[in-house]
Design a protein around this nucleic acid. Structure first.
Lengths: 144, 144
DNA sequence: CATATCTCAGGAATACTGAAATTA
DNA sequence: CTAATTTCAGTATTCCTGAGATAT
C-alpha cells in the first residue's frame, strides 16, 4: 500500500463509489453509473445524446447503448426533435425523476452522517484544496 | 458542474490519471494502467496473478488477460512454480524494470513541479485529510 | 482415503472507445 | 451538405465455471 497522494485520491474515489453503489443496489436495484446517468439527466433535461455524453464524460456511443435499457425500466423517455434531423431528446419519466431525487437525498444524508464523528475533518477546507488542485492539474493539462 | 465533494474527488482522480496517461503515452507509448501494472509488480516481484490482482484492486481475470500483452512487449516474464501446480510467477524483465523506474521518477517530478506555483496548497495536510476520509469510508463500508 | 474447501486460470458477458457508416 | 446517432472492431473489466491443490 503506497502513501502517494495520487494513489490516495484514486482509492478514496473508488471507496466512495463502492459505498454509494452498495446503498443504491440494496435500496433501488440500480448501479452508481445508472444513478449518475439519471442525476445528470435531471440537471440538464431535456437534452440529447451528444450533450449528455459530454456531461457524463463518456462517448456518445456509450450513452446511445445505455438508453434502451433505462427506457425499458421506465426511468427515461425518448422523443424526436422535428427541428433537428436525427436528434433524440432525452427526459426522465415521473418514476425516473422520483428515484433520482430520493436516491440523491439519501446519499447526501449518508455522506454527511458519515463524518459526524470526525470533527477534526474540515470538509469545506479539504474541498477547497481539492478544487485548487483540480484547477492546477487541468491548467497543466491544457498546456500540452 | 456540481460542487459536491464526492464529484470533485472523482474529477480530480480522473484529471490526474489523464495527465499521467498523456505523459506516459507520449514518452514511452504505454498507458497509465500498464504503468500501474509494472509499478505494482516492481514493488512485489516476484509474485503471482492472485496477489498482483489484490494489489492492483482488480480481478484475477483482468491481470491474467493483460499478462500476454506485456510479455509480448518484453516488459514482463512468466515462470512456473514447481511447488504449486498452476501458479504463474510474474517478474519484470530488465527493460520492464528500467521503464517502471524512469517513468515513476518522471511522473513524481512532474507532479511536484505542478504545485510549485501554489504555495497556498498544503499537500501534506490535504493528504492527511484524505487518508482520514478514506479510513472513515472504509470503516462505514465494513459495517454493511 | 474420501470429501470438502480453497486457489487458480480462463471463458462468457458487459461496458467503453474512436472511427466509420448511416440517416434525417 | 451537415449534424446527430448508431454500428463496428478492438480493448478492458468483472462474474462465473471448472480443474487442480490443500486440508480435515
Amino acid at each position: 500500500m503506497s502513501s502517494r497522494l495520487t494513489y490516495t485520491i484514486n482509492h478514496l474515489a473508488t471507496a466512495l463509489d463502492a459505498y454509494a453503489d452498495a446503498v443504491l443496489t440494496a435500496r433501488w436495484g440500480i448501479t452508481i453509473s445508472q444513478f449518475t446517468f439519471l442525476a445528470v439527466l435531471e440537471e440538464g433535461q431535456p437534452t440529447d445524446v451528444t450533450r449528455l455524453a459530454e456531461c457524463l464524460g463518456v462517448s456518445k456511443a456509450a450513452v446511445s447503448k445505455r438508453v434502451p435499457g433505462l427506457v425499458a425500466r421506465g426511468l427515461v423517455q425518448t422523443a424526436t426533435d422535428p427541428a433537428h434531423g436525427r436528434r433524440v431528446v432525452l427526459t426522465l419519466t415521473d418514476e425516473g425523476l422520483r428515484l433520482a431525487r430520493e436516491a440523491g437525498d439519501l446519499l447526501e444524508a449518508a455522506f454527511a452522517q458519515m463524518f459526524d464523528g470526525r470533527p477534526e475533518l474540515d470538509l469545506e477546507r479539504t474541498h477547497a484544496d481539492l478544487l485548487a488542485m483540480l484547477d492546477t492539474v487541468l491548467a497543466k493539462a491544457a498546456e500540452r
